[in-house]
């Protein structure tokens, strides 16, 4: 066991866990942040996606000992009341069916739009293919990402 001072969603949390514990289980079992989902445990489904210093990572493969002072953002930290443009777009397109994968999808999409504010369809396919949706809402996810991109203040770059 070892002590860690983690910065999650802008707040500091002191925890005492085994250094190998993946952030997924630190978030879910120790910090009671249940929005980040367990789907496969081997980085094949994307349900556990969170942001580490603003970039998408699979929290099931991120041991707590590797986090250090880096900031973690989870779905709960994106906005408390669905005001983030990506969350708004998700609601506008009524994307979810069962909804289980959608937190991970949203965290991936947010990260994509940060790096590439106006992604093409191929960019979206490429970036989002690590996130499985078992209900098959992929078309709406793509539409929602495009809607969120339009809402962004950044102008599309000519390619």
């Amino acid at each position: 066991m070892a002590k860690y001072n983690l910065k999650v969603n802008g707040k500091n949390h002191l925890i005492d866990v085994d250094p190998s514990t993946p952030m997924l289980w630190v978030l879910r079992d120790h910090l009671n942040l249940q929005g980040t989902k367990y789907g496969c445990g081997v980085a094949m489904c994307g349900a556990c996606t969170v942001h580490l210093n603003g970039s998408a990572v699979r929290s099931c493969q991120l041991p707590v000992s590797a986090v250090g002072k880096q900031a973690i953002t989870t779905i709960e930290g994106l906005s408390a009341n669905a005001t983030h443009p990506v969350q708004k777009a998700w609601i506008e397109h009524d994307v979810a069916q069962c909804g289980y994968c959608q937190a991970g999808q949203i965290m991936s999409a947010t990260s994509l739009l940060k790096d590439n504010p106006h992604p093409s369809d191929e960019d979206i396919d490429g970036y989002m293919s690590g996130n499985i949706c078992r209900c098959g809402t992929y078309l709406r996810i793509k539409e929602a990402i495009k809607t969120a991109a339009k809402a962004s203040k950044t102008q599309p770059q000519k390619k």
Partner: peptide
């Protein structure tokens, strides 16, 4: 719209 849509996109403990 899905009555739980907002809870889903904000990561509420629904499951």
């Amino acid at each position: 719209k899905n009555v739980e849509g907002e809870k889903i996109v904000t990561g509420k403990p629904l499951f």
